[in-house]
Amino acid sequence: MTNASRLAIALLATLAVAACSKSEPEAAAGAEEHAAAGHSSAGLPSGRIAAGEELAKAKGKATGQSCIDCHGSEGNAPIDDPSPKLGGQYADYIPHALQQYRAGDRQHPLMTPQAATLGDQDIADLAAYFGSRQGQLRDLHGVE
């Protein structure tokens, strides 16, 4: 083994020990700061429930529809089978879906134009609102 290899292994071991040596309160505080900063897998700011509720009720310029027109006031009464229930939805489902509609990577006659005008804060707010509602989601894992 070369000296460079030994040095690399020693350096990695030192970094691993340092990372694992954080006390639980320090690690928990770091996780809380991360959550408070609004970090999500969608890369959005923290959502505001009240702002999301107002936005969910507002008629979109592109379609003349609001979120609640199609998904229900609590997000649990979609107007048709293909429309998902949004109430109590997983934290990053709505942000990722809306970002995909906004980018044109996901297509729907109403959702694509509706999402096209949403900013990152709008998406975070809608996700916070619908995520805070009582959910009626079911885990279908193992259902035949």
Rank of each mutant, 00 (worst) to 15 (best):
Gly47Trp: 02
Tyr93Asn: 14
His141Trp: 00
Gln134Thr: 10
Leu110Gly: 07
Ile49Leu: 06
Glu54Asp: 14
Gly72His: 14
Pro109Leu: 07
His71Asn: 11
Ala91His: 12
Pro95Cys: 12
Leu7Ala: 02
Gln65Glu: 14
Gly60Cys: 05
Thr112Asn: 07
Ala128Gln: 08
His39Cys: 03
Pro113Trp: 10
Gly87His: 10
Thr112Cys: 03
Gly43Met: 01
Asp139Phe: 02
Gln107Thr: 12
Ala10Pro: 00
Ala13Thr: 06
Ala4Gln: 11
Arg102Leu: 04
Asp92Ser: 15
Ala116Ile: 06
Gly52Trp: 09
Gly64Pro: 15
Glu24Ser: 07
His108Gly: 08
Glu144Pro: 06
Leu55Gln: 11
Ile123Glu: 01
Gly131Trp: 08
Gly87Gln: 14
His141Leu: 01
Pro95Ala: 09
Thr14Ile: 02
Gln107Arg: 09
Glu24Ile: 07
His71Ala: 08
Asp69Ile: 13
Ala103Cys: 05
His96Asn: 15
Phe130Gln: 06
Arg6Ile: 08
Ala16Lys: 03
Ala127Tyr: 03
Lys57Asn: 15
Glu53Ala: 13
Ile68Asp: 15
Gln114Tyr: 10
Ala77Met: 13
Thr63Trp: 09
Gln121Ile: 13
Gly47Tyr: 03
Ala8Arg: 00
His96Thr: 15
Glu54Phe: 08
Gly38Trp: 06
Ala128Met: 07
Glu53Trp: 10
Arg138Lys: 12
Gly131Arg: 04
Gly131His: 04
Leu126His: 05
